[in-house]
Write a protein that binds this DNA or RNA. Structure first.
Lengths: 340, 340
DNA sequence: TATAGTTACGCAATCGGTTGCGTAATATGT
DNA sequence: ACATATTACGCAACCGATTGCGTAACTATA
């Protein structure tokens, strides 16, 4: 069992042609039941293993899906990847995962590598930095299905999967307003990324609807790295009119800020009401428990996986770039409620 | 640019042989500098892309590393994967990641698939269930480097990368003892997995050293799913001699249990001192802050990646199955200290 | 200038499946 | 019994790069 066995070996041993072996193993209709049985069982007993290199070359496909994400190790993204992997695995697709680490250049390199590796499809969540998209053109030229999730941008005929960030931002903000907040700060991620931009727009929508004024002070843009919480604190303290509510674009920063605020003696939610985004596990642990928007990472991954696989299997009209908006959910916990 | 360009196209256009093109593109020494320059620059301008299917077939290698983990989406594992990916990416290796979801059967299937896909190496963190290892034999037969990390088992000539769980378990337990605990409960994961078994052994070592008695009541074995915290609580309440300290084999369960205990009016650390394991981000958020053992996932991933790539590049004697033990670190926070 | 040594490249086999087309053998219809 | 359809399989080209071996052209040595 040291030497690799090929279909030629099987063919010789069974006195059939390699073509017949190949067809038998692939359950091709033009091979008789008996011959198939003979071949398949002999293949098993002899320990034959297909050589995917050869199969890929001749079929020009790899049964492999490429994924590019900013970072593997965030609760949201690892949930999403887990969902994608589960679906891919069930359909016998392999997943090649790579990280852009928020760098446009690495994203481009990864895209090239995945293209060269012959992935059958590509799923992307964009890096913070990315503003130019020509590295994806080749996929379109070669008609390789391309799908964006979570961090997306407009791309003709490309399905996107994410939640309605604008509505979610609106819901979060309106919730704070309903709890009595009048001067709300929005701590946003980079606004050029759709997710954050839309949350911000939802924020403004809610202010507008409830006739609250919006000044530049009501917005603080950051990369959402919790280590930089001090800058957020500075902004909060420097504000002329004190904020009575903060809507954070993610929970990690919200939690860091809650801890900093508590240390300063600020009472939450009495002095400032706070809501986050993502329903990160820590939101249930922090005291006070953090209100947030549930962004279902795992389900998103599953849907994204299913969507791309439908495309690959041709079940779906490839033209129809359906974009899926997942339902988000406002989760009210103690950090934002007024009667306490 | 619609049709794919091959080395044959380049060869024809430049009046050289395909062999020369191939060698030029691979910077083979027997091609003159000028010819190389001609070929490389023309290849670039014409938009030539290598066909890895063909290259893989002829070289019988894929520049791809397979990874099997129990679950993608735990803080520890996604950190480790992030580290692995970073290293792999830097060395131009692709990463195919698959999840066993703690099932031995899926682990076997994934191993088969990855073998068939022609990965150049395999990195594994074992599923809870796995007791039989024959699905890895084929890798050894074919001399495909195999490495285990975190959840490992003894495998001749296979490098393993993990922390010294026994010492870590000992350190955690001794810390509780030093804080005055006399009757400590150890909430363990499945003991047939080395990581948990060794933590448990370290636990017993510490009790023995400090002449504390160990009875079956001092051990509670679980799958560490925080949803099952009630069973742990039951065990705690049913114990005849009240526990004054608990050493959890992971932070997630520790946090769940702290919340349950607090709800019951138990004071931590006054009544019960608690230490976890992993240094999960939540350990810094929970009140009281959870003492724990830092298990550096990212660094582990980086080391594991470097190790397997050294093997692949032949820098290291493949025989020498070096096993790496990472340093762990006892992190003392408020959940375990006595003067409070 | 004859000989040996380099340099630079081409020939052709090889990696192992896949698949369009052709055909012998058998089945079906009248 | 004869024409036609169907079944079951083989032939051989093909996918696109890699590489051992051979050799023409050129350089260095005596």
């Amino acid at each position: 069992m040291d030497k690799k066995i090929t279909i030629y070996d099987l063919a010789e041993a069974l006195n059939v042609s390699p073509a017949t072996v190949s067809r038998a193993l692939n359950n091709h209709p033009s091979i008789s039941f008996n011959t198939k049985k003979r071949i398949v069982s002999y293949a098993q007993s002899s320990g034959y293993r297909i050589n995917k290199f050869a199969a890929n070359l001749s079929k020009q496909k790899s049964n492999t899906i490429g994924v590019i994400v900013p970072k593997l190790n965030s609760p949201f993204m690892s949930d999403a990847l887990s969902g994608i992997e589960k679906v891919a695995n069930e359909h016998n697709y392999n997943l090649i995962i790579s990280q852009s680490l928020e760098s446009e250049q690495k994203e481009k390199l990864n895209a090239k590598t995945l293209y060269d590796s012959g992935v059958d499809a590509l799923m992307v969540s964009l890096a913070y930095e990315t503003t130019n998209y020509e590295h994806f053109e080749i996929f379109r030229e070669q008609k390789i299905p391309l799908l964006f999730f979570d961090r997306v941008d407009y791309f003709p005929n490309c399905p996107t999967i994410l939640i309605d960030n604008r509505q979610a931002g609106f819901d979060a903000t309106e919730h704070l307003i309903q709890q009595g907040c009048k001067n709300i700060l929005h701590v946003s991620g980079y606004l050029k990324r759709n997710a954050y931009n839309n949350r911000f727009n939802g924020f403004k929508d809610a202010l507008y609807k409830h006739k609250l004024k919006f000044t530049p002070y009501n917005l603080y843009e950051t990369d959402l790295d919790p280590k930089k919480v001090e800058f957020v604190m500075e902004h909060i303290k420097n504000s002329k009119e004190k904020f009575d509510g903060i809507f954070f674009a993610n929970d990690a920063m919200a939690v860091a800020c809650i801890q900093a605020l508590l240390k300063e003696g600020v009472q939450i939610p009495k002095d400032i009401k706070i809501i986050g985004f993502n329903n990160n596990p820590v939101s249930e642990i922090i005291q006070p428990n953090l209100s947030t928007i549930n962004y279902p990472g795992y389900e998103l991954g599953v849907l994204a996986g299913q969507s791309i696989i439908s495309h690959l299997k041709g079940n779906i009209n490839i033209q129809s770039a359906e974009s899926i908006l997942l339902k988000h959910e406002l989760i009210v916990r103690t950090s934002s409620i007024s009667n306490k």
